[in-house]
């Protein structure tokens, strides 16, 4: 306290005291100009940012659903399912993909869960042809580089999602064989995910997220196929 090394700045006695009104007016004017600039920047970039976000989602959907040329986003509230714009409230989103001739190729679904480091968000594509998952893309991840982030790069792990079986049982209410995680090089059945050696926790996070999400979404999708298929026709 009171260190002699730091000389306190001598108060500037010559300048008269500023009145409160001047201070308020100055800050008010600067605040006003700032507000105008920010709103201007927001308005002029809004369209581009929206396009970028939509383009990113569309690109991701095309990645997890091979052969897709168009995407329509459906929103679901309870049993209600219809095409929804970006801002409409909904419980779940389903991104339906259509090929060039307007036929439904599959449904892409976003799901999230706790990874090793932080929340993981992934997008997976469910193909109607094989009743299996044909693609998985990690949207948000803070997993450890070189270890947990292998869920994005490891070829053996990626191969799990070439055709991961999630077909329903005969009643059509549940997945016949829920997705399970197995050790590296021990995959025997099409509904198993082979873990990454050294990144068991991240692998398990992905498997758990998919198990939970498919148990809820796949029966729903199969029951509402007509609505999804119709989307491709009238959107022509």
């Amino acid at each position: 306290m009171g260190s002699p090394l730091v000389e306190p700045r001598a108060p500037d006695d010559t300048s008269p005291e500023t009145s409160g009104l001047v201070m308020i007016v100055t800050m008010g004017v600067i605040g006003l100009i700032s507000a105008v600039l920010i709103v201007g920047a927001y308005r002029s970039t809004l369209e581009t940012i929206k396009e970028n976000k939509a383009a990113f989602l569309e690109k991701s959907v095309f990645e997890v659903l091979p052969g897709t040329a168009r995407k329509i986003t459906f929103g679901a509230n309870g049993e209600e399912l219809r095409e929804m714009g970006e801002d409409e409230p909904r419980e779940f989103s389903y991104h339906a993909g259509y090929n060039a001739s307007g036929e439904l190729t599959g449904i892409a679904i976003v799901t999230e869960g706790q990874g090793f480091a932080d929340t993981l968000r992934i997008l997976y594509g469910y193909s109607l042809e094989c009743h299996c998952i044909v693609g998985m893309k990690v949207l948000d991840s803070r997993e450890t580089p070189g270890l947990g982030d292998k869920i994005m790069t490891d070829p053996a792990f990626r191969a799990n999602f070439d055709a991961l079986d999630v077909s329903l049982n005969d009643e059509g209410k549940e997945i016949r064989n829920p997705i399970v995680l197995v050790k590296p090089r021990q995959k025997t059945d099409p509904w198993q995910i082979e873990a990454i050696s050294g990144a068991t926790i991240s692998s398990r996070a992905i498997a758990d997220m998919l198990t939970a999400s498919t148990a809820r979404s796949i029966p729903f999708v199969e029951q509402h196929l007509a609505i999804f298929k119709a989307g491709g026709k009238h959107g022509e």
Partner: peptide, 8 residues
């Protein structure tokens, strides 16, 4: 905002 518009 600019960065979001330039490179998402």
């Amino acid at each position: 905002y600019l960065l979001q518009a330039i490179s998402f």
